[in-house]
């Protein structure tokens, strides 16, 4: 199976790799990436603004604070990724460790 996959993969790669100059892709342009980020930031702002226009009824009182979930999401994400990054010192080994 593994042979089949890599054989398949290699053939495909050889056949298609560098197949002439590729057309310009929208996503390859830095301006497109910036546009996507701007849209994300706008969506974030809107989601917080929405908190002013309805009455929250969460299970815990502090969840009713404006933008609680926004702050929580941001902090949790950064905390998780940076902690995991630190864990690499302890847990990461060379790729052939078990071979």
């Amino acid at each position: 199976m593994a042979d089949e996959i890599s054989r398949n993969g290699n053939q495909e790669r050889q056949a298609l790799h560098g197949a002439a100059a590729e057309e310009d892709r929208w996503l390859d342009r830095p301006s497109s990436i910036n546009l996507i980020i701007k849209i994300l930031v706008a969506a974030c702002v809107l989601s917080v603004l929405a908190d002013f226009f309805y009455h929250k009824h969460a299970d815990y009182s502090f969840q009713d604070w404006i933008a609680f979930d926004a702050v929580f999401g941001f902090v949790a994400y950064v905390g998780l990724v940076m902690t995991a990054k630190g864990l690499r010192r302890l847990l990461m080994r060379d790729e052939d460790y078990y071979d």
Binding site: S47, V48, D51, A67, D69, F74, Y77
Partner: peptide, 14 residues
């Protein structure tokens, strides 16, 4: 709204 806030801001963190 709360779910969107959580996910969008986590994406922003990324």
């Amino acid at each position: 709204v709360t779910v969107l806030q959580l996910l969008l801001f986590a994406a922003l963190a990324f």
